[in-house]
């Protein structure tokens, strides 16, 4: 039996573990403009990244965009996930398909869709002008707003599906009991449904936060060249500046910050609502 595991396990070991170990090793090397990379065991790249105001700024932007997108996705995903969980029969099957479908369509295609909607001659500006609300086109593309809209819609299906699968397991009778005892709908949500769906809230937010932190196509296409998040900054080090050790260090800073914050956030949320 264990022999059946060998091909897959070997593949993942070689193709995932080895590259990650190598990338981490590179992050401790030093960069030289003539030789590109000098062997070393130095934390210099990490220290430079943290000290450099430019990269501090990039990390800061990434963090607050990711946090904002996670909160927006949670706010919009909760009602949608609840509605999906409480649906029955054919409608539910169709709506689930409609939720999975955008996940399957790549981020580049979806960013292209937002570009057609948000551009200066795009659908939204045409509609605003048609209604006489604005005279000049409003600049939406290449702003933080465009990136936030793009990322939120990319991650929303994950949030909806995660929340729906947890909410499904909450018996309806619990809500009915609260309502019968006189709780208003919002109170039922705040005191009953939300606390019971907390595992879904934590899992969904963690998953979505990780995806937001690592977003690549959406910030590149909707944010333009002036807008920088971590993932595009990492690739730039490999493609444009060929400073691999520094790029490797940036990649691991992104990985560690994301994991650290995700674990801290989950622990905090769970502790807060357990008592």
């Amino acid at each position: 039996m264990p022999l059946l595991l060998l091909p897959a396990a070997l593949l993942v070991c070689v193709m995932m573990m080895a590259p990650m170990v190598l990338l981490f090793r590179y992050s401790l090397n030093l960069y030289s403009p003539t030789q590109l990379m000098v062997e070393a065991l130095s934390p210099a790249n990490y220290l430079n990244a943290v000290r450099d105001p430019y990269y501090r700024d990039v990390l800061g932007t990434t963090l607050w965009v990711a946090l904002l997108c996670t909160l927006l996705a949670l706010a919009a995903g909760f009602p949608a996930g609840y509605a999906l969980a409480r649906m029955r029969g054919r409608w539910k099957a169709w709506l689930t398909l409609l939720t999975i479908f955008p996940l399957m369509v790549g981020n580049v295609v979806r960013a292209a869709g937002w570009m057609t909607l948000l551009g200066n001659t795009g659908m939204l500006n045409a509609a605003l002008r048609g209604l006489g609300l604005v005279g000049e086109p409003v600049q939406i593309m290449y702003t933080t707003g465009a990136v936030v809209i793009g990322i939120v819609t990319v991650v929303l299906p994950y949030m909806i599906l995660t929340l729906a699968s947890v909410i499904e397991s909450i018996p309806r009778s619990v809500e009915e009991a609260a309502a019968n005892m006189g709780a208003r709908p919002f109170t039922v949500f705040r005191r009953v449904v939300f606390p019971l769906s907390l595992p879904g809230v934590v899992a969904g937010s963690a998953l979505v936060f990780i995806l937001c932190m690592n977003a690549y196509a959406t910030p590149v296409l909707l944010g333009g060249s002036q807008f920088k998040m971590m993932a595009p900054a990492v690739y730039d080090q490999f493609v444009r500046t060929t400073n691999w050790p520094f790029g490797a260090a940036l990649a691991f800073i992104l990985l560690f910050v994301t994991l650290g914050l995700t674990m801290a956030g989950s622990a905090l949320l769970q502790r807060r609502y357990r008592g």
């Binding site: 993942v12 193709m15 995932m16 590259p19 993932a231 490999f238 990649a251 990985l255």
Partner: peptide, 24 residues
């Protein structure tokens, strides 16, 4: 542990894995 390993590629961010594979 093995099933964790095999699900690993889903958990590692694409940026890290992508640049890692390139240098590898």
């Amino acid at each position: 542990a093995l099933s964790g390993l095999l699900l690993g590629p889903l958990a590692v961010p694409g940026v890290v894995l992508g640049t890692g594979l390139y240098v590898f």
